[in-house]
Structures are given as C-alpha cells and as structure tokens.
C-alpha cells in the first residue's frame, strides 16, 4: 500500500511538473560557432506542384506550359536574428542559380549555405538576380558564377548582363495555340536594372549551431510571375519578355512577391 502511495505521488509530481513551464533560461554563448542552413526552393503553380510539360491555367483564359527551362538567380542571401543582427553570406559565395533541373524527386531544389554564424534567426532576405554593384565591379567578385551563368543560359550573349529568370515553353491565348513562350527578364548593364529584394519572416525561429542542420522550405509560386502584383497577358506580348524597359520591371515586381516561407525544420 505504501509503495502504491509513493508511486501515485510520484506520478502526480510528474504531471504537475509537466504542466509547469519548462524553460531553461540559460543564455548560450555562441561566439565563434558556425553552422549551416539549407534553403529548399519548391516551385509550384498556385497550389499545384510544378512539373514540366504540364498545362497550367492563368487569368484571362490563357494557359502555359514550361518545356525546357525554369531557372532564376538568387543572390545576397542574408539572415536577421532575434536581436536584429544581420548575417550576410560572404561575397563570392552569394550568387546562385535555382534550376528546376536540379530538383530532387520531391521537386525541391537545395541551396546549402555553410559557415553561417550561430544564432537564432527570424528573418531571411535575398535578391532576385544580380545587383548593380556587381556590374560596376566587372569581373571582380563574380568568381565562377560567370561561367555557371553562361552554362545555364542565364547570361545574355549580346550584352553584358544576367537573365534573372528564364522560363521557356509554350502558351495558348484567344488567338494562338502553343505559341513560343520565353520570359528572360534580367538587367542589362547599368541601363536596365531589374534587381529586386525579398524579405520573408520565418514562421518559426531557425537555430543555427555547429551540430544542427536546419532547413527553410521556400514556396515559389510561378503563377505569380504572370498573375502577381500586376496581371499580365500573353496576348499583350508578355509571351516574349527580354529586355523591354516597360515589361521587365513589371515581371520583376511580380517575382518579388512570389516567395513565401512555407515552414522550417530545426535540427
């Protein structure tokens, strides 16, 4: 009977303690620690997973299908921690091409960032494309990115500048069926600057530590490139977007709003 009493009391204690909050309010010393964060870009169209050679509907009874390319450039990735401090991925390692061809079976494109200062991060900021500073520096600081960009067809061949996005496929509107679709919005030197930045709040704090491997799952809604801040129509010429000074900024702003952080994984 006594033992039973003890057991019950112990269990009761356990319950009570589990109900009380369990905060280890120890402030960690993180100086010098470095860790990594994996960004997972997940392209979709509306609430559908993206796949090549699949027809998607957009506004105004128009539809499109991407057949060969879905790529965009992400650069200047930086994070803000819960104290407002910002950490930027170092120059020279901070330009990436998110290429659907690089996606895994689940359609996720990984971007592994190493040597991130250990901290508790609450915000991520990145740029779409290449900023003007890079152009004024010429070849300096672009490292192997120039070669990578050219190989992936993200560099103009007749002007110096990057294609920030590359969508290639076919479209259908009221008058055309399976016409050629090519959206290659980018910057051209200093005369056309379409670089835009995106800041996203993380739904949960991301803890970067030496022994942890957090992931940030970023959802990219390709439909927003056409039906974003501004709805654009293929019938109005948006089936071919290259360096037009009117069309490209509209696409750039649309792209700025196509990213959200769907969720994060810690550990």
């Amino acid at each position: 009977m006594k033992q039973l009493k003890y057991t019950l009391v112990l269990l009761l204690c356990a319950i009570i303690s589990s109900c009380s909050s369990d905060n280890d309010a120890t402030t960690e010393n993180l100086t010098g620690q470095k860790g990594s964060i994996a960004l997972k870009f997940d392209n979709g169209v509306g609430d559908q997973n993206f796949a090549f050679n699949t027809t998607y509907q957009k506004s105004n009874n128009e539809s499109f299908q991407l057949t060969t390319d879905l790529k965009y450039i992400i650069s200047n990735v930086r994070f803000k921690d819960q104290n407002g401090n910002e950490f930027a991925v170092p120059e020279g390692n901070n330009m990436f091409i998110i290429d659907q061809d690089d996606a895994n079976n689940a359609g996720e494109i990984f971007l592994n960032l190493d040597n991130i200062n250990a901290a508790n991060y609450t915000e991520i900021t990145f740029g779409i494309g290449v900023d003007q500073d890079k152009y004024t520096q010429g070849a300096t600081g672009q490292g192997n990115f120039l070669t990578l960009a050219q190989d992936k067809g993200m560099f103009w061949s007749w002007a110096s500048g990057y294609k920030f996005v590359r969508l290639d496929g076919i479209y259908t509107d009221a008058t055309t069926t399976n016409g050629a679709l090519a959206v290659h919005m980018g910057s051209v030197g200093t005369s056309l600057d379409n670089y835009k930045e995106v800041t996203l709040t993380l739904p949960n704090t991301v803890l970067v530590r030496t022994n942890k491997s957090p992931e940030i799952h970023i959802k990219a809604d390709i439909l927003k490139i056409f039906d974003g801040e501004t709805s654009v129509n293929f019938a109005d010429g948006y089936n071919q977007v290259h360096t037009d000074a009117t069309e490209t900024p509209i696409i750039a702003v649309n792209m700025q709003n196509m990213f959200t952080v769907h969720h994060v994984h810690n550990d």
């Binding site: 057991t7 112990l10 269990l11 356990a14 319950i15 369990d22």
Partner: peptide, 22 residues
Amino acid sequence: KYTLLGFISLMATSVFGMHKIE
C-alpha cells in the same frame, strides 16, 4: 506484484530526471 510495483516506481523516478512526461 510488489516487485513489479517497485520496479515501475524505480523506472518512473529515474526517468523523472529527464524532461516532462509525454
């Protein structure tokens, strides 16, 4: 019965040191 009880209590106390019950 008592042995079992004792064993269980022991286990309960030892894991009590860990975090909360779940």
